[in-house]
Every structure is written in C-alpha cells, then in structure tokens.
C-alpha cells in the first residue's frame, strides 16, 4: 500500500512551486527596498509596512520584478497585441520556435548519422570523435556574427543562420549519447548475435539501435533545449530579424528588467513544452518496444 502522496505528482510540485514563489516575493521586497526607500525619502512620504511592500511590487524598473508583474506584461504582449505586430511576444516566440525546430531536426539527423559512421568505421571514429568534442568547445556566440555575416554575403539571412547555430549546438549531445548508446550492448549480447549469424545490419537494427533508444531520447531532451538556446543566441547578433533573443537584448540595453524576465519566462515555457513533447514521444516509443514501466 503506497501513500497517496507517493503516487501523486501534482501536490509535491505545487508545494515546491509555492515555496519558490514565496521566496521570490520575499526577495523582491528585500532587493527592491533600497530604491523604494530613497524614492519615499525624496517624496517625504511616511508609509506603513503593507503599503511599502506593495510599492516594491509596483516599480517600473525593479531590481527583481515579481511574477505577477511579468505575467501581466506577457499577457498584454500576447493576447492584447496583434500577432503580426513586432510588439507581440507571440510573434517573437514563433520566430524563435521555427529556427529552433529546423536546427534541432537537422542536428539530430546529423548526430545520428555521425554516430553510426563512428561506430562502424574505425577511421572515422579515430579521426572524428576527438574533433567533434573539440568543435563544441568553440564558443558559438563568437562565431554567430561571422556565420550571419558570411551567409549574408550569399544573401542568406533570417532563419537559416540561426538554424545552423542551433544545429551546431544540438548535434553534439546526440553524437556523444548515440556513440555511447550504440556501444552499450556488452560482449555477451554481441556474441549472442554472432551465434545467430546476424549480419552487421541486423546487429544494428535488432540490438544496437534498440539499446541506444534511452540514450537517444536523453540526448534529444538536452539537444532541443540547447537548440533553443542556439536560436536565442543567434538572434543576439541579428537584431533586425526579431525573436526572443532580440527582446532580451533590447531589454538589457534599456534597463527594462520586466521585459527581460518576460522574454526569459516565455523562452522557458517554450523549452519546457518542447522537452515535454520529446518525453511524450519517448514514452510512446518505449511502450511500442514493449518496455515494462
């Protein structure tokens, strides 16, 4: 007999979320109060504690904006704004989302193909693997302006440069995870396949590929999140194209903290949805493969 709170996920999550929100509101008072005290001194106003707390939640450029301020801005910029207007956050989110998905799709396919080549060909394993790892240590944001400038020379702008940056970031976890996953079958299992006289292709489809599935989905969860980061970072160097990254940048230039947090929260919601979708597909695939849960 398991206790109800062991099987229910909602209550623990809500408890932790409530704790975080409580902490957030408390910290907002602490961090915003110095500025508010100076404002009140300048105005010569004597305020009670409750009113003071409410004042710290209502600044135009707070050090730490509170959730309801951020949500109000998001609501205003999505539901109350035309989706085709550049002031709409939904428009910017869609711009980022399309670059993310293209980059992720190409990055995953490229990653799987490279992993397959690496485990089947000694020469590519020995020459490629160290360099795939090394290539990822190049800070992509530094190359992003060069990619944008270089592709602009061939009159390619907008989605493609961002998708390329996303692809570059997301293929890494897939290669590393898949090489590990495709090598996960141990000697015993490989020997069994050999006693069945299985061809290399059969060993791949019936043993290596299924046993790599958990690694693939773990990599894809990381990959899609990094892919979104790649798209946002790509937008930092191309302010004209729009997207959540552009909102972050303009917000930081103008000291609009609420705008930064709104873009950040929306990007987070987007990422969580995408990661959740990968998780759903993983469960479906696991059930299809007859996994015991």
């Amino acid at each position: 007999m398991t206790a109800w709170w062991r099987t229910n996920k909602l209550i623990p999550i809500l408890t932790v979320v409530a704790a975080i929100l409580l902490f957030w509101y408390a910290m907002a008072v602490v961090m915003n109060s110095p500025w508010q005290i100076r404002l009140n001194e300048r105005a010569g106003a004597e305020v009670g504690f409750t009113e003071f707390v409410l004042q710290t939640y209502d600044q135009a450029k707070p050090v730490l904006p509170v959730p309801h301020q951020i949500l109000a801005v998001i609501w205003d910029a999505t539901v109350n704004t035309d989706i085709n207007s550049p002031r709409s956050l939904a428009y910017h989110a869609l711009v980022t989302l399309s670059a993310t998905l293209w980059g992720f799709a190409f990055g995953t396919v490229l990653g799987i193909l490279l992993a397959v080549a690496i485990i089947h060909n000694d020469a590519s394993d020995r020459s490629l693997m160290p360099w795939i790892i090394a290539s990822q240590t190049v800070p992509i944001l530094a190359i992003a302006p060069m990619i944008v400038v270089g592709l602009a020379a061939f009159s390619i702008t907008g989605l493609v440069p961002k998708a390329i940056i996303s692809m570059y970031l997301s293929f890494f976890p897939v290669v590393v995870g898949m090489v590990k996953g495709l090598r996960a079958p141990d000697r015993l299992e490989l020997d069994l396949m050999r006693t069945y006289n299985a061809s290399a292709f059969q060993v791949f489809t019936k043993l290596r590929w299924p046993s790599a599935m958990p690694f693939l989905f773990a990599s894809m969860r990381v990959g899609i999140a990094i892919s979104l980061i790649g798209a946002v970072v790509g937008e930092l160097s191309n302010a004209a194209g729009g997207g959540l990254g552009v909102r972050l940048l303009t917000g930081s230039y103008n000291g609009q903290t609420i705008q930064i947090w709104a873009a950040l929260l929306l990007a987070a919601a987007l990422a969580a949805t995408l990661v959740g979708l990968v998780g759903v597909v993983e469960r479906l695939v696991a059930r299809q493969m007859g996994a015991r849960t």
Binding site: A263, A268, A271
Partner: peptide
Amino acid sequence: FVSALPIIG
C-alpha cells in the same frame, strides 16, 4: 524545466 531554460538570458 529550469535546465531547459536559455539560462544565458
């Protein structure tokens, strides 16, 4: 949720 955040932001 948070590890999926574009934390660079």
